[in-house]
């Protein structure tokens, strides 16, 4: 496979992962927003999606269930955005 195809496949996989995360958050947290309207770099807390600390526990639980990836207290920056959650999953999911 060419290098271009590798890059193209990796990009498609990442888009699919981000879409899965958006749907997981909207369904799991019962957010009153359309999953497609959440931007990949939009802050999840504060003025972003306005999630709160209880939601972080829910996200940790959802990521464990869906991806077998465990987020610890040392990884709080993970919750910055969809892209940051996705980066963490890619770096830590079982091979």
């Amino acid at each position: 496979m060419s290098n271009f195809d590798d890059i193209k496949n990796a990009a498609a996989e990442r888009l699919a992962l981000n879409a899965r995360l958006r749907t997981m958050l909207v369904d799991g947290l019962e957010l009153p927003v359309d999953a497609d309207k959440i931007e990949d770099d939009q802050p999840l807390f504060g003025r972003g999606l306005e999630l709160d600390s209880l939601d972080t526990l829910e996200i940790v639980s959802l990521v464990e269930e869906e991806f077998e990836v465990y987020i610890t207290d040392d990884d709080k920056s993970v919750f910055g955005s969809i892209n940051k959650v996705a980066d963490y999953i890619v770096a830590n999911r079982p091979r």
Partner: peptide, 10 residues
């Protein structure tokens, strides 16, 4: 007990 994060446990 289930998930634990940020001082909270479900």
């Amino acid at each position: 007990a289930g998930t634990h994060f940020g001082g909270m446990t479900d």
